[in-house]
Simulated assay, not measured.
Amino acid sequence: MPSLVIDSSMLQSQELRSFLQASPRNFAVLADYAWFEIYKQQSLEAVKRGLSVVGDFPDQLILLRANGEIVWLDPTEPDLLERMQFKETADSIREMAAITRSAAIDDAAILEQLHGHWCFARGLLPKLIEGAIEIAASLPEMEAQMFTKAEIQIIRTSSRYPGAMMDTIYGSAVQIWEHLAHANGLPWQNLGDNRVARSYLFRYALGLVIHLLWWISRGSQPIRRMDRMRNDIVDLSFCVYASYFDGFMTADEKARWIHVNLVAALEAMSRMDGAA
């Protein structure tokens, strides 16, 4: 029963439709940022397009809770994956798809609901831009603090890193996780590596370090387009969500690379924890 997280750009794709048509046991996982990308356009037509495929398969959708809720989920408790999801959402998706496909939409309650979604997306944009600016500014500092010139050359010329570099990568991810956990008021002390690795914020921290590796490998170019950096932040969240499921459907090379390497790093952590 494969469950794939779907990148926003793939919501209207034939690839997604074919995946869902292939088996009723194939599931599309939709995160909050998928809806953000739809609602930020603030048009009914965008909602229609966003539901054009998944609206035909409401029983094959897994809807994730909002990012802010998932951050707070205790990784030490069982059934984390189940707690990340909304339940019994098929009817609401089916209803919304039917409404948006109707010839004329003038229901005041529906329009009010859509305007509420649009306001949410409009309010989230400044926070994403702020985060993009902060991360873009931190990349050169992280590069200088984490790696020597010789190690930077390895990142740019090889996909295999020596053990000392892997220790640096994991250690830096733990430091970022501790900072993020403290900033969000989350308890993080006395968690073993395996439990820490289950938490969303640690996976996000590790994903940030992997994003740094991508940036270094492409020449450490200054980031001037904050809209692209904002998209990178959204894509990173998709990569983290996908690390909990069976895969990631995306057409973006960078997002695919980050997801593959994030999953590989988590699997390596699991092996190290099991051998300890």
Rank of each mutant, 00 (worst) to 15 (best):
E112T: 08
E69S: 04
S52M: 03
S138Q: 13
M84G: 04
N67E: 14
M84Q: 03
A66K: 05
T100A: 15
E77G: 14
E95G: 07
N26R: 07
G116F: 10
P75V: 04
E45Q: 10
E130F: 09
E69R: 00
R101S: 10
Q60H: 06
K48R: 13
L63G: 02
D32I: 02
A66D: 00
R122F: 08
E112W: 11
P58A: 00
F36K: 02
W118M: 02
K48T: 12
C119L: 15
N67R: 15
T89Y: 01
S43P: 14
S138W: 15
L139T: 07
A34S: 14
C119I: 11
K48Q: 10
L80I: 06
A97F: 07
M96Y: 04
L128C: 00
D79T: 10
H117R: 12
A108C: 13
R25M: 15
F57D: 02
L139W: 12
A136T: 13
I135V: 14
Q41H: 14
A31N: 00
E88N: 09
A109H: 13
A34I: 09
I105P: 07
E134Q: 15
E95H: 12
G50K: 07
E45A: 15
G131F: 04
D79W: 13
V54N: 05
E37I: 03
P140M: 15
A108L: 14
S23I: 09
S23Q: 07
R83N: 12
G50M: 03
R83D: 06
F57P: 02
P126W: 10
A136C: 15
L80P: 00
D79R: 10
Q60T: 03
Q113F: 14
E77W: 06
L139H: 06
L80M: 05
I105G: 04
L81N: 01
F36N: 03
A31G: 04
V53E: 05
A97Y: 01
E69A: 01
M96Q: 09
G68Q: 09
T100W: 05
R65I: 01
E112D: 12
I129D: 11
D106P: 13
F120P: 05
A109K: 06
P24L: 14
D91I: 12
Q113E: 12
L80E: 01
T76S: 05
T89C: 00
R49W: 09
I99P: 09
A97H: 04
T76M: 10
D56H: 09
T89V: 00
Q41W: 08
A34Q: 01
A104Q: 13
A46Q: 07
D106V: 13
S52D: 03
I70T: 13
L44D: 02
I62R: 00
D74N: 15
R101D: 13
E130G: 04
I70K: 07
Y39W: 08
L44G: 09
D107G: 09
